[in-house]
């Protein structure tokens, strides 16, 4: 078991009313799964992803990641946890505009205390693996959307996470580029990486091993 959510609730108070963002979510994810989270806008997909990614807290329930109880550990420990095991992929890539492809890839490693030579090797490896060696000195603005997302995924993968969280990774891409990214995800999944993606597209969802449907913060 990679992670387990037990009766997770998350809400905000607005105008004296409690609005539930997540309502009684229970979910177990095994290593090697490829899960697609689906649902209409505002159903809580991204919130769920953020909770799993430990970027966002929750108000009630339990969250176990590997052997740790996320709901009860300290912030610093939690940060170490996701730093080590989780990679993020965003719809709008979120590459740093002022850094080149190579530097963007290197950035997460800077925060993980790898030595210079190790970092170099890991970046080279990643560039190689994604076939973007030729683009390593370009800036994000000089790449197509698909290429940017490729860099985004490469960055998420560079420190060998167990879990990739992708929030509509193909949302800003055309269908051909989207297909390519999905193919890549499938391939990564086959190599053993657990993936949870949020998507609107049935077709993308079909790449996964399991689909979770959300509506108004509930699993249906």
């Amino acid at each position: 078991m990679l992670l387990q959510l037990n009766n997770i609730f998350k809400w905000v108070n607005s105008g004296g009313q409690r609005i539930f963002l997540l309502k009684d979510i229970s979910l177990t994810v095994e290593e090697g799964e490829f899960i697609s989270v689906m649902g209409p806008s505002g159903s809580g997909k991204s919130t769920l992803l953020n909770v799993i990614g430990m970027l966002d807290g929750f108000d009630e329930g339990e969250y176990h990641f590997l052997d740790e109880s996320v709901h009860s550990i300290k912030e610093k420990h939690r940060a170490n946890l996701y730093k080590e095991y989780i990679g993020f992929v965003f719809q709008s890539y979120h590459l740093l505009d002022e850094l080149t492809v190579k530097e963007n890839l290197e950035m997460p490693l800077l925060y993980k205390k790898f030595k210079g030579s190790e970092r170099k090797a890991m970046v080279a490896d990643m560039l190689d693996r994604f076939n973007i060696v030729g683009k390593k000195d370009l800036f994000p603005a000089q790449l197509s959307g698909g290429q940017q997302q490729l860099v985004g995924i490469a960055r998420a993968l560079i420190s060998n996470p167990k879990l990739i969280l992708a929030d509509e990774p193909t949302g800003n891409l055309n269908s051909a580029q989207g297909e390519e990214i999905m193919g890549l995800f499938k391939q990564l999944n086959d190599e053993g990486v657990t993936i949870i993606q949020v998507t609107h597209s049935e077709k993308n969802a079909s790449h996964g091993s399991r689909i979770i449907n959300l509506l108004d913060g509930r699993m249906i």
């Binding site: 940060a79 993020f88 979120h94 925060y111 993980k112």
Partner: peptide
Amino acid sequence: GVRKVNGAT
């Protein structure tokens, strides 16, 4: 944000 998500303290 990006840096933090990628592990910056």
